[in-house]
Amino acid sequence: MSLSTDDVKKVARLARLAMTEQEMHSAHAQLQNIFDLIAEMQAVDTRGIEPMSHAQELSQRLREDVVSEADQRELFQSIAPQVERGLYLVPQVIE
């Protein structure tokens, strides 16, 4: 798969990254290399092999459904840039 600079721009926008023309250019080259590597791997014959969703062949450990966390709001909010009435304040977002 070949990647256009427009694709890079789109990915940058989705990732909320402000990139200069030059950064865009080098990112394009790096990403293209990654895509080439993917293409190489895609070419390997994997018929009959069950795909893995994790690099380790283990299964998920489960937690009992018990409340174990105490309220630490004061501690957590002591490092927040801005809080008010228990809420974290962020620049306004309305969709």
């Binding site: 459904d65 409340v67 966390e69 309220d71 630490q72 709001r73 228990g86 809420l87």
Partner: peptide, 26 residues
């Protein structure tokens, strides 16, 4: 459930803001 899906914070409705927001929720 009593606790959250990926951590042991409470899921009770109507608590004071962020008193049930543990490190995982944050």
């Amino acid at each position: 459930t009593n606790s959250k899906i990926f951590s042991g914070a409470s899921t009770a409705f109507g608590a004071e803001p962020n008193t049930q927001a543990d490190a995982v929720s944050l």
